[in-house]
Nucleic acid binder design. Structure first.
Lengths: 246, 246
DNA sequence: CGGCGTGGCATTGTCGGACAATAAACCGCT
DNA sequence: AGCGGTTTATTGTCCGACAATGCCACGCCG
């Protein structure tokens, strides 16, 4: 182990030269993705990693910074701190989509309507699958949400959050985690607008439509669920366009 | 400008303390997302940024490393190199989805079938929109792809790439860039399997079905397009299950 | 005159070491 | 036993230096 930096001679031709930082980053990434390092595991201290890889702590830190931004690890300062392996589940996909869509929207590289359109197209299979695959707990959670929506007044700041939870819950009940992540993420990015034009009438209608959707899911009636969600989405779209969505 | 580091006293209560790296990163991010810095623009050298922000180059570099990982900038070493503002369009969304889905699949946090299922659900609205919104150039490109697929032999290494291009082109023809990014990304992650069991018979049938889809899109017949894609997807699913997808 | 190596130069990449900031654990005083 | 200061392990930042990179200009040579 007396090898020193800078010795990658006589290797396969055409092999791209990897900078030290890239190699360190890749080695740690592979260790995580292969399961060698599991969720919650604490990596060795940066000085120790630097010693093991035989690079400077600066290089190790750049690799760790990149992995942190990729959400593969998270950093905790302090005595018992360190670099921990981040939990990586389907919510990561949702976060990634949210970030990217948010950037694209503020830059004007995509239109708001494109996001909303995709979300609506995803919600139809989501309710159908939910009606097919829902568990009893799903039903319980959905009824709870609808009850709280009925109780909330239209100017309650909780309203948008409840609506997002409602649609997210349905997507989760579908049993397809990719679908759930997409619906949740796209809903998160399209929600703020709903919040604007919310009259008591619209609020009551929304709750009624939500209830119809839940009833269909409870009855495991896929066609009824599809009808209900389409009515709901159509209703919302109408009451958005009326408000002038720039 | 004689202020020195470390002086953030007497500020709004509850205001989270931001580390220097976070502040630098945020300032640059805002500059990019606000349009102050445009695609292709060259940032000042790291030493100059360090001087302007009154932090060390190390800190600037960590901020830039994070922004690089987020694909907001890219770095070029060398004399005329520097940190450039990355092009941020809807393809960024596709890349983000690909990366995240890939991680989740190799970690076993999501199932392959979940990804394939969502993709198939998205392809239906994609062909319908394509039939409605296609341009003449879209038609040209699609016909070109199908022609090349017909010409290619089943063991041609181009086959998977052509299939991905075909489905991606349809999604692009829909006019919805979010939809196009999703379909393209999910297809990219689910394609390798198709590649396995590919007999000449299946190859011919695939080309025939592709042609039917294109014909429907050319005719702007949404219902026919939906029928055709559903037949195609069903056919593929059957010939995948037969092969035993672990 | 034109190609081509070659050395200069600006910039990023890495190094090494020091110190500051952080936060948990420890210890001692009451 | 509670409380507060102190120790300690680790990440965060600073500094200065040098290596690596890759464009550019210049000059050598054909």
């Amino acid at each position: 182990m007396a090898e020193h930096r800078g010795d990658q001679p006589a290797r396969m031709i055409g092999q791209k030269v990897l900078r030290p930082r890239e190699q360190v980053e890749e080695r740690i990434r592979v260790a995580i993705l292969s399961g060698e390092l599991k969720t919650g595991d604490l990596l060795p201290p940066e000085t120790e990693l630097a010693r093991q890889f035989n690079v400077s702590r600066t290089t190790v830190r750049e690799a760790l910074r990149s992995l942190t931004t990729q959400r593969l690890i998270y950093k905790v300062p302090g005595s018992r701190g360190g670099n921990f392996v981040q939990l990586i589940d389907h919510h990561s996909l949702g976060s990634a989509v949210i970030d990217s869509v948010h950037n694209l929207l503020t830059l004007g590289s995509i239109e708001f309507t494109e996001v909303a359109e995709v979300r609506q197209h995803l919600e139809v299979p989501a309710v159908r699958l939910a009606a097919a695959n829902r568990s009893d707990e799903d039903v319980e959670r959905l009824r709870d949400i609808v009850a709280r929506q009925k109780a909330a007044s239209v100017d309650d700041p909780e309203v948008p959050k409840l609506d997002e939870q409602f649609h997210t819950l349905i997507a989760q009940a579908s049993g397809n985690r990719v679908l759930a992540s997409f619906v949740s993420a796209l809903h998160h990015e399209t929600e703020p607008v709903h919040y604007l034009d919310l009259s008591p009438d619209v609020g009551r209608a929304t709750v009624r439509q939500h209830k119809a959707i839940v009833d269909a899911i409870v009855a495991k009636d896929q066609d009824a669920a599809e009808d209900a969600i389409i009515k709901h989405l159509t209703y919302l779209r109408k009451h958005l366009a009326a408000h002038g969505t720039h």
